[in-house]
Amino acid sequence: MLGLIWAGFATAAVVGAFIVPAHILIQGVLGPLGVPSFDRHYGTFARALSNPLVKLYLLVLFACSFYMLAFRVWYVVRELGVPSKLGVGLVSFGLSAVGLIIAGYLLFTGP
């Protein structure tokens, strides 16, 4: 089980390392400063989200980010002295799962 959790983290961390910086750079920094980005207007955003592959890709983006958070919080909180391995794991991975479910709901039921 621990091996699977570690394998999931390694995968999420590698994929996240490749794809996350581009999104933050374009959507978070350059887009608001005037560079065209797909999420700056409703029409372009909706057109992009109408493609199922884009939805799937964005779901992977959210999944990697939230899984990394859960895994690293799970480890760091224990290293800071919190003794409950199971409790911290349940909270961190549970919140991560909730975030992913919300992302999936917004992506696949939206306009």
């Binding site: 983006l61 980010s65 990394m68 958070l69 690293r72 975030g99």
Partner: peptide, 9 residues
């Protein structure tokens, strides 16, 4: 770093 990334997400 995971906190910052998740916050932006």
């Amino acid at each position: 770093t995971a906190v910052g990334i998740a916050a932006w997400m």
